[in-house]
Simulated assay, not measured.
Amino acid sequence: MTEDENLTIISTYRVRADALGEFQELLGRHWPVLRELELVTATAPQYYAGDAGPDGGVPIVEIFEWSSGSAAQHAHTHPAISEIWERMATMWAPGSTEPVRAHLAVHPLEVAH
């Protein structure tokens, strides 16, 4: 990936059911702050939720596009983003056998039908 390419990210989180409302509020702040800092593209993010698992964790999926290959690195150094991420980290489901968060960087794949 070059510096100028956008990068789609699929982030998954396992959130405690009792923290779901607050987590949704944080997600509502997450992309706008990234966008204000020009770290993500103007493409609106997508969000999905699954049913709570046996550990009480609710799977949440967030899909968005970094604006460049270095945008994630810049996000890790910005206090406004760090504050959101640190707050998110207090809401993870305990005792899960699955990761409480994961990030997958993907590119479009041409498939002939």
Rank of each mutant, 00 (worst) to 15 (best):
P59I: 00
M1H: 10
M1V: 10
G57H: 02
W85Q: 10
A112G: 08
L109Q: 11
Q73L: 12
D55G: 03
T12R: 01
R29G: 05
E83M: 09
V111P: 07
R87W: 00
A52I: 01
S96P: 00
V15D: 00
V111M: 13
E83F: 00
L27K: 02
Q24Y: 05
Y47I: 14
P45M: 08
G53T: 11
Q46K: 14
F64N: 03
P108M: 07
L20S: 02
H113D: 12
M1A: 12
T2D: 13
A80Q: 08
R87F: 00
W31N: 10
W66L: 11
T97R: 03
A75Q: 07
Q73K: 12
V106C: 13
M88L: 09
A71L: 06
H107P: 01
L39M: 08
P108E: 14
G21T: 13
I10D: 05
L34I: 11
H113K: 10
R16P: 01
M91V: 05
D4M: 08
G95D: 01
E5L: 10
G95P: 01
V61Q: 07
M91E: 02
T90I: 00
Y47L: 13
V58L: 02
E36V: 04
A75K: 06
A52N: 03
T43M: 14
R29A: 12
T43S: 14
S82H: 08
M88S: 05
R29M: 09
L26I: 07
E3I: 12
G21W: 07
A80L: 06
I81L: 05
R14S: 02
A17N: 02
A42C: 09
M91C: 03
Y13H: 04
F23D: 01
A71F: 04
L27F: 03
E110L: 09
E36S: 11
M1E: 09
L26W: 02
T2C: 07
A72L: 15
